[in-house]
């Protein structure tokens, strides 16, 4: 190491970045792999039903299965667009319109015995 490098901040080792990136991407991929096979289909069908009534962003739907000891929880999180964009034709300027621009409809809360 030359005297000039000594005063510069050490760059973050590329190997450290490699490890961090791998940990993140693989956590994702493993989670997808361990779910039951019907999850992607379920997500697809739920989406198509909801899309009949509301404009939804495909990326704002999350279907998650948590396996517990006694029961598993199926969690469905769908972020709805602000009302004005809805297909259901709510008239703009309706009363009690102080809802946040986007409201999360959460937790289908379907529980089944594991």
């Amino acid at each position: 190491m030359s005297i000039f490098n000594f005063f510069r901040p050490a760059p973050r080792a590329t190997a450290v970045q490699a490890k961090e990136r791998l940990q993140i991407v693989m956590a994702h991929e493993r989670a997808g792999r361990s779910g039951p096979d019907y999850l992607p289909m379920l997500q697809q069908e739920l989406l198509s039903v909801i899309a009949k009534y509301v404009d939804i962003d495909q990326n704002k739907v999350e279907v998650k299965l948590d396996r517990g000891g006694d029961f598993s929880t199926l969690e469905v999180n769908i972020e709805l667009p602000s009302r004005e964009n809805g297909k259901a034709g709510a008239k703009p300027g309706d009363a009690d319109d102080d809802l946040p621009a986007s409201k999360a409809l959460t937790n289908g809360g379907i529980k089944k015995r594991g």
Binding site: A13, T14, A15, V16, A18, K19, L22, Q23, M26
Partner: peptide, 16 residues
């Protein structure tokens, strides 16, 4: 290269 921080260490790969 591992020592220079340019290559993943054995332990990193094992951990992952």
């Amino acid at each position: 290269r591992v020592e220079r921080g340019e290559m993943l260490k054995v332990d990193d790969v094992l951990e992952i």
